[in-house]
Design a protein around this nucleic acid. Structure first.
Lengths: 221, 221
DNA sequence: CCGCATGGGTACCATGTGTTACCCTTCGCG
DNA sequence: CGCGAAGGGTAACACATGGTACCCATGCGG
């Protein structure tokens, strides 16, 4: 009885969860204005009534979706940017993780969505930024301060430097993927991009003084 | 007579131009799905028939808008990244111009729009990227090659390096403005950001080898 | 064993959308 | 001076949307 009931009539939380899941799919792939309640209930199988009971309406459902995904997706990166080895290794590690996350489908779609609707949903934009890019930059900035304390790097504004580094990660490669001009890069290409970013970030590319660098063209294995 | 006629009945080109202008406003501020033909004709004063005569429909009008704005906005930067003075000055100049353009209202709205709809309008995304970020990166890459030829810098992949530099420009500051979390920065803040980006790009921030740098805190002996 | 509250499903509504058929004004030309 | 044509304005339409009133099944209390 109870089992049958549970199978037929989903728990309220179950249903709510499924609605959130389906709504995320729909909103993330069609945008806010382009998505419709009917499409959501078409996927989740329930009825509109359920949506209007559990959430208030389209707007509230959308906000729930964005908040939920903002929080969960970038939580993996957030952690603490533990300052483990040397600067280069830490930056490489951070960059790899960040770029890998940024290039996966859901964060990409979420990015498109929030960029598109951010101006019309200010508190959502805030939540997204604080949970994602903001937290990432803050963590990295903290790590940079630690390295600066150790004397390994020298930077005037750690927070801004962190943002610059993240900016290098999220460069045209990310933009091209966001625009759908090319598929997401694989781990190898990600690593290549991150390595060059770390190289530039640490050593720059001015020639005379830093001529001690080993790569450039000649193969040093 | 002719004057009255011209005042009453706009030239076909006149009308077409006004439609494009109004449609740009509507699309850029409401997004593709959120915009409506009625809103466009409400601003331009004509009738829907005009739109469907001059353009094919909503989709075509949208494409015309994006193409037009993609071309005209970033044309100012495009030019040729003339390699004038030294690397730092050129990068600073390029960065200032690029960031100033990126932070002005229309390019911001266009960015939001294309990011949102890029996946659904692939050829538009391509056109936008080629006319804007792509051209900018290509120009800068060309300049970097020239500097590399002169021996002023040393970089393994100029194109990617150019993209990294542009990425540093378009970092969290740009994202925050795109999301509407803060107003666009003034010239002073832009210059500050660009300066640090140039500094990092050229010299990096690793401490021991490049201790010859003059800022940070202590005077370099 | 039966009535009742709960909540999810059906059907509907008002509205706004993109699009098109029709008509009238206005200009160019004989 | 009259006529044909072209193009813009009016109005309608088919449709999809967000939102809601009604209804029925389900599980519990008396």
């Amino acid at each position: 009885m109870a089992k049958e009931a549970a199978a037929r009539r989903r728990t309220a939380d179950e249903l709510r969860h499924e609605i959130l899941h389906a709504a995320a799919e729909v909103f993330l792939e069609r945008g806010y204005a382009g998505a419709s309640i009917d499409q959501v209930i078409a996927r989740v199988g329930g009825s509109k009534r359920a949506i209007y009971s559990h959430f208030g309406g389209k707007r509230e459902l959308f906000e729930a979706i964005v908040r939920r995904n903002s929080g969960r997706i970038l939580g993996a990166l957030g952690r603490e940017e533990v300052v483990r080895r040397d600067v280069a290794a830490t930056l490489l590690d951070f960059g790899m993780r960040a770029l890998t996350i940024l290039m996966s489908p859901t964060p990409l779609a979420l990015y498109r969505l929030v960029v598109a609707e951010g101006a019309r949903f200010p508190e959502l934009a805030r939540a997204f930024f604080d949970a994602g890019p903001g937290r990432g930059a803050a963590g990295l900035a903290q790590a940079l301060r630690e390295f600066q304390r150790r004397g390994e790097i020298r930077v005037s504004d750690p927070r801004r430097a962190a943002e610059h580094f993240i900016g290098m990660l999220r460069d045209d490669l990310h933009l091209r993927v966001v625009l759908g001009l090319r598929p997401a890069p694989g781990p190898r290409e990600i690593e290549q991009s991150v390595r060059q970013a770390v190289e530039i970030f640490l050593s720059g590319c001015r020639n005379p003084p830093s001529s001690r660098r080993r790569e450039t063209k000649g193969a040093s294995p």
